[in-house]
């Protein structure tokens, strides 16, 4: 069957955002408007790992969206089940579509049936709490807030944010990287990598066409910033008088030691994020095909321990590149990428 990217974003909201004076918000809205059209095209693209004719039918997602109704009890009231028609609430439909886009990437690019590889049902709750400016993975499901209305808009708006949350489930079921210090920054980076790949795959973008931003369109138009994080240029995603400047480093020389944020997991993820970006753009083409496959192989390869550090992860990507592609361009690209961010691979 087809990737379910049947976006039902209310046109009035997208058109409003597309006309925004904030160029990043406008650009994001235009991209989302465009996504409807490109996703329809994507449905007809051949899938690299598609089974041969006569083989077992490809996996299908099992999605359920709940409405927390601005309270904090989870999961809340069920509002849309797999296969049901879109509802009037655009947030519900965006979550449903984003889960589908994430499922499609893992199935089509890596031949994986959901986050656990065994058809795990995908559950999300939207409208969590009041003016809640966050989204998280609670170990079993995704949770999305509506945004505080001053800094953040609805957390279901960027599809890479939905992919990011679900990828926390993927990590939990594979390498189970401990959410602290370097392994925590790797856990965060894996979510940014696959979140970005979800968006790139849904839009049919190659590595050089992608924006490599995490959370584009999530900031309120008054905030000075394109997104929350930039894999292409960590540290440049926002610079705002209220929020301050994007604190992400792009090199080990600038690694941030802090006791906050579980040891800076959302800060130091900039380093492995940038390594992935460098490897993917060096290889060119679609990032999910080779760079993405190498990272996927590392997560699922069973060689990482929960307390894996950057150097161990980097060495694992080199081994995975050799195992899958031999002594070729892939291994060179990966080795060069880690060297560029100051992480040794041997």
């Amino acid at each position: 069957m087809t990737p379910s990217f049947c976006t039902i974003v209310p046109p009035h909201l997208l058109e409003h955002l597309a006309a925004s004076e904030n160029p990043s918000v406008a650009a994001a809205a235009r991209r989302t408007l465009l996504a409807d059209a490109t996703a329809r095209t994507a449905r007809t693209r051949p899938r690299p790992d598609a089974p041969a004719p006569g083989a077992e039918a490809p996996a299908e997602p099992r999605r359920t969206i709940h409405d927390a109704r601005n309270r904090t009890a989870l999961p809340g009231a069920k509002v849309r089940d797999e296969g049901e028609e879109p509802v009037a609430d655009a947030t519900v439909n965006r979550a449903y579509t984003g889960l589908g886009a994430t499922f499609a990437l893992f199935r089509d690019a890596f031949g994986r049936d959901s986050m656990d590889g065994a058809g795990l049902p995908l559950i999300a709750s939207v409208h969590y709490d009041e003016k809640y400016g966050n989204a998280f993975w609670n170990g079993e499901q995704m949770v999305f807030g509506d945004g505080d209305g001053e800094i953040f808009l609805d957390f279901t708006l960027p599809v890479d944010v939905i992919g990011h949350e679900l990828a926390h489930g993927f990590t939990q079921y594979t390498a189970n990287l401990e959410y602290f210090s370097q392994s925590g920054a790797l856990n965060e980076s894996v979510s940014d990598v696959f979140g970005s790949l979800v968006k790139q795959y849904a839009l049919g973008q190659s590595a050089d066409q992608a924006d490599w931003l995490i959370g584009a369109g999530l900031f309120h138009p008054d905030v000075q910033g394109a997104a929350l994080r930039s894999m292409k240029a960590p540290g440049t995603a926002y610079d705002d008088d209220v929020l301050g400047k994007d604190p992400q480093p792009a090199h080990m020389d600038d690694y941030v030691r802090t006791g906050q944020d579980n040891g800076g997991v959302h800060i130091n993820s900039g380093i492995p994020n940038h390594a992935f970006y460098l490897a993917a753009t060096e290889l060119g083409g679609n990032a999910w095909e080779r760079a993405g496959r190498i990272w996927y192989d590392v997560l699922t390869g069973g060689t990482l321990t929960p307390d894996t550090r950057f150097t161990e992860f980097a060495a694992a990507t080199v081994r995975a590149a050799r195992a899958r592609y031999g002594d070729a361009a892939e291994i060179q690209a990966v080795t060069k990428a880690w060297a560029a961010v100051g992480v040794p691979t041997d």
Partner: peptide, 10 residues
């Protein structure tokens, strides 16, 4: 408040 998807302290 620390952490969160954005990692922005308040």
């Amino acid at each position: 408040r620390t952490g969160g998807f954005a990692g922005i302290e308040r």
